[in-house]
């Protein structure tokens, strides 16, 4: 009995070992989340700054303020993967998920590390919406430095096929005739999806009704099931349902048409002054020295120029919009202004 058990145990251990051994040589595998117990190295870091042509000497904590598997996660892990695969930096970038509070938990965590040259986070639309609705203790302009802007995500405005709309005009016509009849689904209550709908409402003089869902997946399920009539989704999410005809694409929110949907017009083409897209960039704590920002900005520029990054962007239908740390500051100021107006608009309408 005992011997048999030992054998079994040995067998299990061996198979575990083989299993891990097989998977460890994968060079692409970025380090698994590491507990954030590294001491903050404020004093040491500040001294190094003075040196011209700053170079990192410690591993960088790359905060993803959202959970595993989501848009921000995929985006951040791709950057990390490209840096490590091409040996672009002398140190490791360790991607760490810090989800909660629509990103606020992650940013507050970073902020708590003080002036560190080795921690940065990704941004998405909630980087703007949470502070502006009073749901974040941080200030967009004071608590952050802007390292590099990497991409923009367009939204696709789509309708359930059963309604028979083929163009945005037809939807607008129907909505005018039947105010309050069309239900529009989006993620969260003060999200880009909500902004898009209220902009369409204002510009077209119609009354779509906003239904907030927890995730893009829930929105997709609701529109495919015919429970809501129109929605905003990312073009890559909608992908196949557009091909099968279950969803009808009406317009995209990007400046130009997107490659995978060459027949779908932009809002601007249709006479709506809407070019709102989700901005994705990398930020650090306020007060990070310029030399450090310059270094990382250059690094991310290199990333954005790789073929891998370009493929990634086109696969995920993201726009290739790179701004270095100086351009990003101006872009951010503009975008913050816009979001302030959007938040007003949402508040007026709720």
């Amino acid at each position: 009995m005992k011997i048999r058990m030992m054998k079994l145990l040995a067998l299990m251990l061996v198979s575990m070992f083989i299993f891990t051994a097989c998977s460890s040589p994968e060079p692409e595998a970025p380090a698994v989340e590491e507990p954030a117990e590294e001491p903050t190295e404020e004093p040491a870091a500040e001294e190094e700054v003075a040196v011209e042509g700053w170079v990192p000497t410690e591993d960088v904590e790359f905060i993803i303020p959202f959970g595993a598997g989501g848009g921000s996660d995929v985006f951040a892990r791709k950057i990390v993967e490209i840096i490590s695969r091409n040996n672009m930096a002398p140190v490791n970038f360790v991607a760490t998920n810090k989800p909660g509070g629509s990103g606020v938990v992650g940013y507050t965590y970073m902020n708590g590390k003080g002036e560190s040259n080795y921690i940065m986070a990704t941004t998405s639309s909630s980087f703007y919406s949470q502070p502006l609705t009073g749901n974040s203790p941080l200030s967009i302009t004071e608590d952050f430095e802007f390292v590099a802007h990497m991409a923009k995500d367009p939204s696709l405005f789509a309708a359930n096929a059963d309604l028979g709309f083929t163009t945005l005009e037809e939807m607008v016509e129907y909505a005018k005739a039947n105010p309050g009849d069309l239900k529009y689904g989006g993620t969260g209550n003060v999200s880009d999806d909500a902004i898009l709908m209220y902009m369409v409402n204002e510009l077209a003089g119609i009354e779509l009704v906003y239904v907030p869902y927890d995730s893009g997946a829930d929105v997709l399920a609701a529109i495919l099931g015919g429970h809501i009539d129109v929605c905003a989704i990312s073009p890559s999410e909608g992908g196949e349902h557009l091909e099968t005809g279950a969803l009808v694409p009406l317009a995209v929110s990007s400046d130009d048409r997107v490659a995978i949907l060459p027949d779908v017009p932009t809002f601007t083409e249709l006479g709506f002054d809407i070019t709102h897209q989700q901005s994705r960039g990398v930020v650090m704590n306020g007060g990070t020295p310029v030399e450090v920002l310059d270094y990382y900005s250059d690094l991310f520029q290199q990333v954005s120029e790789t073929e891998e990054w370009q493929t990634f962007l086109s696969e995920n239908v993201m726009g290739d919009v790179f701004y270095d740390n100086e351009e990003y500051v101006d872009f951010n100021a503009d975008l913050t202004e816009k979001y302030i107006k959007f938040m007003d608009m949402i508040e007026r309408n709720q």
Binding site: S23, E26, E33, A68
Partner: peptide, 9 residues
């Protein structure tokens, strides 16, 4: 989630 990075590539 923890073993996810293992599958990349």
């Amino acid at each position: 989630a923890v073993l996810l990075p293992l599958t990349y590539g």
